[in-house]
Simulated assay, not measured.
Amino acid sequence: MNIPDIWRGLTRSRLFWPVLTLVALAILNVVVAPNFFSIQVKDGHLFGSIIDILRNGAPTILVALGMTLVIATRGIDLSVGAIVAISGALACTIIADAPDGNNPGTVVFAVAVSLVFSLVLGSWNGLLVSVFGIQPIIATLILMTAGRGIAMLITEGQIITVSSAPYKVIGAGYWFGLPASIVIAGIMFAIAALFTRRTALGLLIESVGINPEASRLAGIRSRGIIWTVYVFSAVCAAIAGLMISSNVTAADANSAGLYIEMDAILAVVIGGTSLAGGRYSLTGSLIGAFVIQTLTTTVYTIGIAPEITLVFKALVVIAVCLLQSPVVQARMHRRKAAPPLPPVPSGTITTPVAAETAGVAS
Rank of each mutant, 00 (worst) to 15 (best):
T73I: 04
A91T: 01
S79P: 06
L78P: 04
C92Q: 09
A110T: 03
V84W: 01
I94M: 07
T93L: 13
G101C: 00
T73W: 06
A72G: 14
A89C: 15
V84F: 06
A89L: 01
G75I: 02
A110L: 07
V108S: 10
T93Q: 13
D97Q: 15
V107D: 07
I83W: 03
G81K: 02
S87D: 11
A96R: 11
P104Y: 13
I94E: 03
G105L: 14
T73R: 06
I83P: 06
V80Y: 05
V80F: 00
F109A: 14
V80W: 02
V111F: 03
I94C: 02
T93D: 07
G101T: 00
I86L: 05
V111P: 02
L78V: 10
V107K: 10
A96T: 01
I76A: 00
I86R: 05
R74H: 08
G101I: 03
T93R: 15
A82G: 15
A72N: 13
T93C: 12
D100F: 01
L90C: 12
C92E: 05
L78N: 03
P104C: 13
D77L: 09
V107F: 02
G105S: 13
A110W: 05
A89V: 08
D77H: 05
N102T: 11
F109I: 15
R74K: 15
A89I: 03
A91Y: 05
A110Q: 00
G105I: 13
A89W: 05
A72Y: 12
S87G: 07
G75C: 07
A89T: 11
D100L: 01
A96H: 10
A110R: 08
A82C: 06
D77K: 05
R74Y: 05
V111C: 09
P104E: 14
T106V: 15
N103P: 12
G81F: 06
S79N: 08
